Amino acid sequence: MKNPQDAIAWAIAYDVSDDRARGRMARALEKHGVRVQGSVFEARLTQEAAAGLLQRLSRHCGPGDSLRFYALPANALARCLHRGGAPMPEDGPFWIL
């Protein structure tokens, strides 16, 4: 990511009928965000990174499948309610060692 301060919080959801394509999509998304439901991920990506990821993942979508990227406004995260599941990826640069 060029500038972590340009990252936007995204909710990414998909509905893919083919098991193999669905697995590929899930593995790709696991590299960029955290799974919060079976086919829903949260990630912090720049607009450009999200657009590129959408383009790459689209090749796994068949007729009737759906792939959605929802940009979450920064102030919306402070008002989000949740119970259980993985935490939202931290804002700003960080390293996992």
Rank of each mutant, 00 (worst) to 15 (best):
G84L: 07
I96M: 07
A50I: 01
K2T: 12
A13R: 13
H32N: 11
D15A: 03
G92N: 12
L45Y: 08
A28R: 13
A71N: 05
L81I: 10
A7C: 12
M25L: 15
D65L: 00
P4E: 10
A43D: 04
A13M: 13
K31W: 02
A26G: 07
K2F: 07
N3W: 10
A78P: 03
A43K: 03
E30H: 14
P4A: 11
L53W: 04
K2L: 11
V16C: 05
G84S: 11
L67P: 02
I96G: 00
Y14N: 04
R44H: 04
R79I: 03
P63Y: 05
L97T: 12
N3K: 15
A76F: 15
D65Q: 02
H82R: 14
L53N: 10
R83L: 09
E90F: 08
R59N: 00
W10L: 01
P4Y: 12
L72S: 02
R24F: 09
D15L: 05
Y14S: 01
L29Y: 04
G52V: 01
R44V: 01
I12G: 02
Q55L: 08
Q55A: 10
H60F: 09
L97M: 14
H32T: 07
R35Y: 09
R56L: 05
N75A: 15
R20E: 12
S66C: 06
G84A: 09
G92D: 11
G64K: 08
P93N: 05
Q37S: 09
P4T: 11
R83C: 02
N75H: 15
R22S: 15
R59S: 07
A78L: 14
V34F: 00
R83K: 08
P87R: 09
A74C: 00
V40I: 15
G38H: 13
M88P: 01
A9Y: 10
M1E: 14
G92W: 11
P87I: 01
L77P: 00
G62H: 08
V36D: 03
N3T: 11
A49S: 09
I8C: 14
P63G: 12
M1D: 13
P63S: 12
L67V: 02
V40E: 12
A51H: 02
G62F: 05
L57D: 07
S39I: 02
T46I: 03
D65A: 01
G33A: 05
F69T: 02
C61F: 00
L72C: 06
N3L: 09
W95C: 02
G23D: 13
Q37F: 06
C80L: 15
A50D: 03
R83D: 05
Q55K: 11
A13V: 11
R56P: 00
A7R: 14
A71I: 03
L97C: 15
G64M: 05
E90V: 12
A49H: 00
G52Q: 15
K31A: 13
H82W: 10
R68P: 03
W95A: 09
R79V: 06
Q37G: 04
D65P: 03
M1P: 12
E48S: 05
K31N: 10
R22Q: 09
Q37L: 09
G92I: 08
I12N: 02
S39W: 03
G85T: 04
N75Y: 14
A11C: 13
V40W: 12
L53G: 08
P89C: 09
G52K: 09
P87C: 02
H32P: 03
L77F: 08
Q5I: 05
